[in-house]
């Protein structure tokens, strides 16, 4: 797999083409903003009936990343479900699939703004988790150091194509959304330019992750 390897607060990390973050020394895989159940939530709220395949598509990619990295710990960085009702209403094949992925490894659900409550799928539920030099939480905080978060769905444009991306500076990482039906927020948005240091990089997802200076 073509990964982008970099050092962050003394941890050696790999950013994967899919948008997942791998920490080989800890056997840890981190993904953010899966938004499982999004199509069901749209339908429930009398919106459009989207193709109901996004959970399988997301889980197919997650399964591939877990298999490729042989991760023993998986952290889902919040907004794993589009809302609490979506978590409760997962159809059976999807719920079973998640259970299979969770079996035999440590699994941490970080709370997000879409899914504040604990889910009934097992695993550990936390609002944040600190491991060595890194702290995992859903939404970035102003003065954090060594923080890994998600929430913003950052994306950046290069050569005329916008792609989801990782934002990285010396203090923090912001992961792209991993879920299939997730829009993105340009890295040029004030919400992101205010958070990230002037020398921040954006690493674009794609066949081979591509680092560029963060467009701002």
């Amino acid at each position: 797999m073509n990964t982008y390897r970099f050092t962050f607060r003394d941890a050696t990390l790999d950013f994967l083409p899919s948008g997942a973050l791998h920490w080989p020394d800890e056997g840890l895989l981190c993904v953010s903003d899966l938004h499982l159940g999004r199509s069901e939530r749209y339908a429930r709220r009398a919106g459009a009936l989207l193709p109901p395949y996004e959970a399988r598509e997301t889980l197919t990619r997650l399964q591939a990343d877990i298999d490729a990295t042989a991760a023993t710990t998986v952290i889902c960085l919040g907004d794993s479900f589009d809302d609490d009702a979506a978590a409760a209403g997962l159809d059976e094949p999807v719920a079973l699939w998640i259970a299979r992925l969770m079996a035999g490894r440590r699994w941490v659900w970080i709370e997000g703004n879409h899914d504040p409550g604990p889910v009934e799928l097992g695993g550990t539920h936390r609002d944040a988790l600190t491991l060595g030099p890194l702290t995992f939480r859903h939404i970035a905080t102003a003065d954090a150091v060594g923080e890994v978060s998600g929430h913003y769905h950052p994306k950046a444009r290069i050569a005329g194509r916008a792609r989801p991306c990782l934002l990285a500076d010396r203090q923090r990482l912001i992961l792209p959304a991993y879920g299939t039906y997730t829009g993105g927020l340009r890295s040029t948005d004030p919400a992101l330019t205010a958070l990230m240091a002037a020398d921040a990089r954006a690493v674009l997802t794609g066949p081979r992750p591509v680092p560029i200076p963060m467009p701002r």
């Binding site: 199509s39 069901e40 339908a43 429930r44 009936l49 989207l50 193709p51 109901p52 395949y53 159809d91």
Partner: peptide, 11 residues
């Protein structure tokens, strides 16, 4: 929605 997977019976 007309999907092969009849997902939206309730909705």
């Amino acid at each position: 929605g007309g999907y092969a997977l009849r997902a939206y019976d309730r909705w």
